[in-house]
Write a protein that binds this DNA or RNA. Structure first.
Lengths: 108, 108
DNA sequence: TTGCTACATGACTATATAGTTATATATGAC
DNA sequence: GTCATATATAACTATATAGTCATGTAGCAA
């Protein structure tokens, strides 16, 4: 299970990737992309966030390698780069569900 | 692979968990705990961080459920709550390695 | 009691960043 | 060319937090 020791530089890079996933707005965007490729305008409508705000979040997600993009005329289409994001979120979800179960037991 | 839709509240909670993993210092602490239970003093020595700083990071990690603790006299022993942290980091590591391979190809 | 050690916490500063507004850039229609 | 649309970006404000210093608190020894 546990692998090689991690260097300080590796941990800095890993922390930066986790930071990209540490904002609810960005998770909302990623969640919206689960349904497939979306333009920025579509993401504005789905998430209800401001245009400049969404654009900045998309730059962060693209810079961290979580989304890829494709320009088509005046639009830019974004999509999930791979399934890792979903797996990461599902792992976190699993943790939350476990916690919730424990809390329910305490109050039962 | 992809599961239920996520509520805004769930995404807020997930983001908070990712945020706990988004600091290099906290990853260093978690990395040190891969070797097993450690006291705060031991973590100070391993990481080289300040006492108050480590203590605060440990509160964050404990509040997020990533570490558990056990008081023994004047000392507090911390340990990884489970293996999920390692799996999460390994997933991120895998992404980084893949990126590095791509970059090497570009310069080859 | 006093003193010492281990840890936690409040107050503070400095930095990072989410969100907004205004503007820039680019593409296509006309 | 002008105009409108789609996206990106610069500048700014407000908030969050990492790190430090000082202090508080709890357990143990003498």
């Amino acid at each position: 299970m546990s692998r090689k020791p991690l260097s300080a530089e590796q941990m800095r890079l890993i922390a930066a990737r986790f930071k990209a996933l540490s904002e609810p707005s960005r998770l909302e965007i990623l969640n919206a992309l689960r349904g497939g490729e979306r333009t920025v305008t579509e993401l504005l409508e789905t998430t209800g966030l401001g245009q400049a705000n969404v654009s900045k979040h998309l730059q962060v997600l693209h810079g961290s390698g979580f989304v890829e993009r494709r320009k088509d005329g005046v639009s830019t289409h974004y999509r999930l780069a791979d399934k890792d994001v979903l797996r990461l979120c599902e792992l976190m979800c699993g943790r939350l569900e476990a916690e919730t179960r424990v809390k329910k037991k305490l109050f039962a």
